[in-house]
Nucleic acid binder design. Structure first.
Lengths: 144, 144
DNA sequence: TTGCAACCTGGAATGATTCCGATATGAAAA
DNA sequence: TTTTCATATCGGAATCATTCCAGGTTGCAA
């Protein structure tokens, strides 16, 4: 499972014409090994430094951005905390704990219904947030 | 409608034991008058300064935080942009345009189904994000 | 092996937000 | 109405994640 995810990411890098560098390999390792924790840039930076001699924080940010933009990973944006990264690209709900900050994935079986999901996952919901990003009616009309 | 919203917010301030100050009145005005734009701190700061002689940005932040914590408004957190504030506390979906950044509200009629919502609202979805904030199983077990 | 676009680096810059110590002021009580 | 003091406000400094930049390095195609 681990091996596959890593190879899979590396294959995707090649397909996209991105170069394979020791830094990127270290970051892929860090991402896959810690995927359940939905790691942030700092965690990845620390983990990656254990595996590659030299990795800078700038590189970690640039790489995570590159990966997100190419659809290899998904960026979960936050305000008060570091952004976190998710290897699971499928439609799913993130359950975020107010107290410990842990982020759990909960995959969507059927047309989703927030309260149901929460109950089944043993999670008490205090705040729901749903965003659909895309293009609004006005922007679709505009030519530019 | 406008008048009501303002009075409503002011009443809530009183109920919560929060003091009515010229700064807060100006911020309430700015919030209500621009509610459709889902204003951020800077916009509110600029608008509020037109109505009250003296308002500092620190105060705007403190006040918006106070309001959110007391459930008068809802904070929409973002990473690359300023946080935005929503007066609509009911369950609804925020449609966020990738190009112009506009945030539209779309109220939830029935058990929600993302693709449906988007189609009806004339919005092309490129990215879906759903978060349920609350308390995880582990934290519920812990006494502290 | 070479050439060069793509990468990497460290440090400085950015920008939103919070913190802080000092000052001012609603509003409850006298 | 005046007093009192918890609560607000202020501006400027501090924080913190993230991005920018300019210069040096390197993967990899030819």
């Amino acid at each position: 499972m681990k091996k596959n995810d890593k190879d899979n990411l590396i294959d995707q890098l090649k397909e996209k014409g991105l170069k394979i560098t020791p830094q990127r390999l270290a970051i892929v390792d860090a991402l896959v090994d810690n995927c359940k924790r939905h790691p942030g840039a700092t965690l990845i930076y620390n983990e990656a430094r254990k595996k590659a001699k030299r990795v800078s924080l700038s590189t970690v940010y640039a790489t995570l951005k590159e990966f997100s933009e190419n659809g290899l990973i998904r960026q979960l944006e936050f305000d008060r905390m570091e952004n976190r990264y998710d290897l699971d690209l499928s439609d799913h709900v993130n359950l975020i704990c107010n107290r410990c900050g842990k982020i759990e994935d909960y995959s969507i079986p059927e047309p989703l219904e927030p309260r149901d999901i929460a109950r089944k996952a043993g999670f008490i919901v205090t705040d729901t947030r749903m965003e659909l990003h895309g293009y609004c009616r006005d922007c679709l009309k505009r030519p530019d």
